[in-house]
Design a protein around this nucleic acid. Sequence first.
DNA 1: CCAATTAGTTTGGTTACTGAACTAACGAGG
DNA 2: CCTCGTTAGTTCAGTAACCAAACTAATTGG
Lengths: 418, 418
Amino acid sequence: MPTPPPPTGPAGLHDIRETNLGSVLRAIREGAPCSRAEVAAATGLTKATVSSIVTELIDRGLVRESGATAERRVGRPGVMLSLDDRGFVALGLEVNVDYLTLVAVDLLEREVVALHEPFAARDAGPEECAARLADLALRALEEPSLAGRALLGVGVAVPGMIDAAEGRVYDAPNLGWRNVPLRAWLRELLRKGGTPDVPVLVDNDANLGAVAEYRGGHLSHTPDLVYITGEVGIGAGVLVGGALLRGSTGQAGEIGHIPLRRGGPRCGCGRRGCLESLAGIDAILRQTVPDLVPAGPLPGTDLAAAVAATVERAQEGRGAVQRALRRSGTWLGRGVATLANLVDPDVVILGGYFAPLAPWLLPACRAAVQAHAIAPRRGGLRVEVSELGLTAAARGGAAALIEALDTGRTPPPSPASR
Amino acid sequence: MPTPPPPTGPAGLHDIRETNLGSVLRAIREGAPCSRAEVAAATGLTKATVSSIVTELIDRGLVRESGATAERRVGRPGVMLSLDDRGFVALGLEVNVDYLTLVAVDLLEREVVALHEPFAARDAGPEECAARLADLALRALEEPSLAGRALLGVGVAVPGMIDAAEGRVYDAPNLGWRNVPLRAWLRELLRKGGTPDVPVLVDNDANLGAVAEYRGGHLSHTPDLVYITGEVGIGAGVLVGGALLRGSTGQAGEIGHIPLRRGGPRCGCGRRGCLESLAGIDAILRQTVPDLVPAGPLPGTDLAAAVAATVERAQEGRGAVQRALRRSGTWLGRGVATLANLVDPDVVILGGYFAPLAPWLLPACRAAVQAHAIAPRRGGLRVEVSELGLTAAARGGAAALIEALDTGRTPPPSPASR
DNA sequence: CCAATTAGTTTGGTTACTGAACTAACGAGG
DNA sequence: CCTCGTTAGTTCAGTAACCAAACTAATTGG
């Protein structure tokens, strides 16, 4: 009972319609195919209200009637409803140190198009990178499988500190970006490319990874969930009751730089013993495949290959490699335990390059979590591995747009805009 | 944009009224004395709507008209509104290792009655303690200054892990409590004492301390705020956007047991090097006034005196004492930095017994935060000292009840119940 | 073919907000 | 002193959204 906050404007009839549009849409997403009557039961709304709302959703192209019921029960059969997966797409993009990724999903969050290209973002600079992103998006929209679909919006994941409200990248050290107004740039580039004006959403890769896991991963619908990126940096996206924890300056979840080991190795941030310097991909590669990585900042382009080499050597049974991975796993576990003590999630998901390394990282990580997380927890904290691969953040970008629809926050697009 | 969560029932006309009742109540709280027209301007609602809502609030005894305006401006003068501080009280209680505290506040959250008594809760056991709490509440309600007031509810702070929804204390190691259905007990005791059935709210002392600071402290209205208890345990109450961060099992904010120093001193939880074992009041007293504290668990009853002795010795200029405090301050700072990296609050407030020790703890603490928190923060994290003393948690218990009114979540009490 | 059952729509009623017109109370200026 | 301009608050008609209940529709089972 002692919770919700003040920040509210005046509430009007409009808000309640919005809320209920969202409820019905969600009910259909979860129950499809289902009848209006079932939706009414699921949401607690009246049949009459559901009818009215469903009509509106159909008008807007979000829902469709898909024939009569299959079941043969007594009584009039209901007409089945499902999300209309034909009319819309949402694009998710990710910039990272060594690649660009695009995922296009339909209303069901099924992947319709996926593009991936290696790209040394650090060398190219932000302008060039934005141009490539826009180009990727425009190319995707040309694909035959997207023909005739209306664009719901574009969600972009960037590894760094973001002002999501403004769509600006404050600081992305691993890309060498500072104060980049990415949303504005992309808006402009997309307009020039002939795309109608749509929402462009910019967010941290860890945050969007968490959204992707929440909405689409194998652990989905766990509302208190943390996603940890295993890229060059380590970041955490924290979902609390299904909502992103952003913090006062939008920098919550900066798990990479919590101090773990006094006098530990020097970190990119200038301090010593940060989690990132002990368990970041950079640190791991330098210990496991020192012959494949140069000194100085990682150029990135062959990160995936280097990680694959590490996996190979570990599988060969090289003790030194396995020990190094276990050590990193232990540090990671200490970091996760700290996070768990403060935020108390249900599950922590290791993503990015941590996923392929999980066979060696995970046991040590779990043991360390067990040892350091506060004791007798009902249920207990789970530490799991992502199955979304390197597209997690991009998927999250797209998923965030779908979610906005689901909650009724963004009013569903009007038929005119299609 | 990528945030709010699913958990919503059907929205109806009722909800919007509730929301707006809350908005108007808050506007009056912040603007009083103010006219209906001013409230309309502040909330964005129509004059007509405001009139209707204000009438309802007056009927319910929450608001009153307090004469005409003082200002002499052209035009018809408005009739001034303020919260009616005469009709209601909310009680806040706190159990701690060495004392019980009660605070009664009116709608303006002004203290109407305060009771404090030393009490060795650990020795007495939970039943006895609940009885004493109920007795304290009943005694308070007899006070002449509360005569004729209706009771809004009772909020109880307990240092331990709480299921706030059920009002049950899972585990309070420092009290020696396990699985105590405190709400049920208190409900029963209060009923026997002849009190009408009111909401009884049980929560963690750190959480309620945070609520108290948010609503009444000198840093109030900072929506991203962390309150740290300095009692026998160290706990953090985390407010995110004005709402409590609870976590999946209600155990968020367990900052006391984050591992800071490998091979550090043994902690009560069985591990080594927890923050609590390095900077808890227990640890501090054992280093600064070893002659005044026995071995074994602190009996508690003279904690205040022992802390006072520490302050005295530090003021006398004893180097060893000052050094010990600085050391603890530094560890505290490392803990705060970790918390800040993960949760990104605006301000961290040190409460409880940390407050009197702040002159020595705070500089070291701030320095450590500066050194370990992630670098270039807009505005920067503030670390401040609570001014609420040992009543913070109890005040928070009462404040949480007032807040429930303010948000319209709890429907304002009907005139009948007064 | 009719009863029972379930689905969906229609209708009438209630609740809350809005906008606009109206009444009320005051200062200022002739 | 009276009128005008100004601001406060109320009243009233209108609209939007919900709900409950009655109604229509489409089946199965006897």
